[in-house]
Amino acid sequence: MHTSSEKISAVIITFNEMGYIQNCIKSVEFADEIIVVDSYSTDGTFEFLQEHPKVKVIQNPFENFTSQKSFALKQAANDWVLFLDADEVVPDALREEIKTTLDNGTDIAAYWFYRKFMFKNDLLRFSGWQTDKNYRLFRKSKAKFSDKKIVHETLDVNGASGIMQEKLIHYCYKDYDDYRAKMLKYGRLKAKEDFYKERTFNYLFMLVKPTWKFFNHYFLRLGILDGRKGMVICHLNALSDLERYRELKKLEKKNELAYYLLMP
């Protein structure tokens, strides 16, 4: 357990994360508390967390990523929060950097983490992810999740930001079906976000955006150098964009139908 005067809450959200959550929890056992909000997993994740002596697990229905993470953040008892996805792992070097940074005192409100992406157990070096970074360590009193996004949620920070030198490890790809389902889910949530913002469906965008996503990540961002792994990742990331526009079209049709049914 972390012994600094600055206590840390590790916070994670889960849904059917067996195979990932065990290593994630193990990597944050240095935190003063571990809070997990589970959206009614059916694969044993909740039962595993219930039995873990260092974890406080709470079940909460999933509406979208922003609302779930905002709910989870409220459960943290400490100001410093280490907020991870269930498929992320804090390696030893990053753990020591976190502890040293807080032990020495800091005026920074939130820290960006760069991530190493893993395709199963192989490192994904390119494919558009090489510059990816996210806020993962921040003061609860200085940050909140933006209500303007419901997927790929962003953190609004009131204060200065810093960057950790060591990288977080992200096990993004378990198998084809799992990653495909994840990308389709992201696409549908992005469509809802677009719909709420009154963005309209466009056939040209449905054609151009996924094509550009694949071309950009596979060729310009060097996914081709990741071999077959890069081809699979770039294809499924582009599929997420395609699903976004398919779903947006469906939402608009449902809305039109409801409008006509309600007309006198």
Rank of each mutant, 00 (worst) to 15 (best):
F83G: 01
E47A: 08
D32H: 09
E88P: 05
V57E: 00
N16Q: 07
I21F: 04
R95G: 06
A76I: 08
Q50T: 12
A72I: 09
D79L: 06
P53A: 11
A93Q: 04
K99E: 09
G19H: 13
I35S: 07
T101L: 05
N16R: 04
V28T: 04
A93P: 00
S41E: 03
A77S: 14
M18Y: 06
S9T: 04
T106C: 05
D43H: 10
N60P: 02
F71D: 03
Q75S: 03
I13M: 11
D87A: 11
P91K: 06
F48Q: 08
A93F: 01
A10T: 10
I35R: 07
D85T: 04
A86H: 02
A72S: 07
D43Y: 05
F83C: 01
A31S: 14
V36Q: 02
D103Q: 13
S39D: 12
S70C: 09
T106W: 02
I98T: 05
C24Y: 02
E33H: 09
E47L: 13
Q22A: 03
N104P: 02
I58K: 00
H52W: 03
A10I: 09
N104S: 13
I98S: 05
P91N: 13
L73Q: 11
E29K: 12
P53T: 12
D38R: 02
E33Q: 14
F65E: 10
E33A: 10
N16D: 15
Q68W: 02
L49Y: 00
P91V: 07
R95T: 14
A10K: 07
S70Y: 07
N78M: 13
P53G: 08
D38M: 02
S41V: 01
F83R: 00
S27G: 12
S39K: 00
S9F: 06
T14S: 14
Q68I: 10
I35G: 00
L94Q: 10
H52N: 14
E29S: 12
F46D: 04
I13A: 08
S9P: 04
D38P: 07
T101W: 10
I21C: 07
C24E: 08
S27W: 06
Q75H: 11
E63P: 10
I25E: 03
E97K: 02
E96F: 05
V57M: 04
L73S: 11
A86Y: 00
S41T: 02
I34P: 03
I35A: 05
F46Q: 08
P53Y: 03
T45N: 06
W80H: 05
D92S: 15
F83L: 07
S9N: 06
S41Y: 03
L102P: 05
F83N: 01
E97L: 00
H52K: 11
A76L: 10
H52G: 13
E88M: 15
D107P: 01
T106A: 00
F83K: 01
C24M: 12
D87M: 11
D79P: 15
N78R: 13
V36G: 01
D79M: 14
D87G: 15
